[in-house]
Amino acid sequence: MTNTQPIGFIDSGVGGLTVVKEAMKQLPNEHIIYLGDTARCPYGPRPAEQVIAYTWQMTHFLLEKNIKMLVIACNTATAVALEEIKEQLNIPVVGVILPGTRAAVKTTKNRNIGIIGTAGTVKSGSYEKAIKTKVPEATVSSLACPKFVPIVESNQFQSSVAKKIVAETLIPLKFKKLDTLILGCTHYPLLRPIIQNVMGEQVTLIDSGAETIGEVSMLLDYFDIANTTAGQPSAYFYTTGSTVMFDGIAKEWLETIPVHSEHIDL
């Protein structure tokens, strides 16, 4: 393995771009390859076996690109497929759930933690288990937000429709006295200003995807595979859906990075 090999990122759609944005900030020398399965998004409502199969298809695609590390930048896929993929690959594999959990446990003062995610992530109980392992007396409130991913994927995350849907969806969490809320889906940081506004300034939002890059950075050092070669890092983007839609969201979110995604069929 050489240090100049790329890091691979996979997600059910555009959500993992929030993780890539953080990677570009914290790991400016690294080459990146991203694959978003926008044609089959969202993963949240799908049965676990199907999510595992799709995650493997994306993983095999990136392995052919000679990646040195795989980041499963999707909470639903992390919840059901991470352990299996980790066991079978001989490169480091990172998911987004444990880093988000660690940050929440460190942040909370009243041990009252909320989690919002897809139906699949919430049903898996992965965040709750991870939090309870670290802080058994924590109160954990989980809420599935199935309408959030479609808003982001259709590039409406700044619309009045988004504001209305977020406000209505989060009502059950408003009275839980939370001081920390985990954004348990990498699509959700695109809705962050609206979520913060609804929940109030007293609630700290944890971006599980952004927290993941700290772990990626640590593993690059641990395995001595960080790219120390000077030169222009590259970023390649692949999508199973519309490149026009993907590039529109990616340009808006990644700002300075020119994005020209390539369509692939899995």
Rank of each mutant, 00 (worst) to 15 (best):
L183F: 11
N197F: 03
S141T: 13
K164G: 10
N197Q: 14
T180M: 13
E201Y: 09
V161A: 08
I165M: 13
S141W: 02
G200C: 03
E153M: 04
K132S: 04
K163Q: 12
S159G: 14
Q158V: 15
S124A: 09
C145V: 09
S142N: 09
V166F: 12
S154Y: 06
V152M: 11
G200F: 15
K163I: 05
P146H: 02
F148R: 02
T180C: 14
P172E: 06
M199Q: 07
I171D: 13
M199F: 14
L143H: 02
H187G: 08
T180P: 06
Q156R: 13
A162L: 15
E153K: 11
F157A: 01
V198W: 07
A144L: 09
E168F: 08
L178P: 12
K174V: 12
V135W: 11
G184C: 15
D179N: 12
K176Y: 00
S124T: 04
N155V: 14
A138M: 04
A167E: 05
E128M: 06
R192S: 09
K174Q: 14
T169L: 01
Q196H: 11
A162K: 09
I165D: 05
L181P: 00
T169P: 06
I195D: 03
K163P: 01
G200K: 05
P136A: 06
Q202L: 04
I171F: 03
V166T: 10
V140W: 00
G184V: 14
S154G: 01
P146D: 00
F157M: 13
S160G: 13
D179Q: 08
V152S: 10
A144I: 01
V140C: 03
P193I: 08
G184H: 02
L173C: 03
P150N: 12
E201H: 06
P146R: 13
S154D: 15
S141P: 01
L190Q: 10
K176G: 10
S159C: 10
K132F: 06
P136K: 00
E137H: 13
P172G: 10
C145N: 13
L183K: 12
L178T: 07
A130R: 05
A162S: 09
L173W: 13
A167C: 08
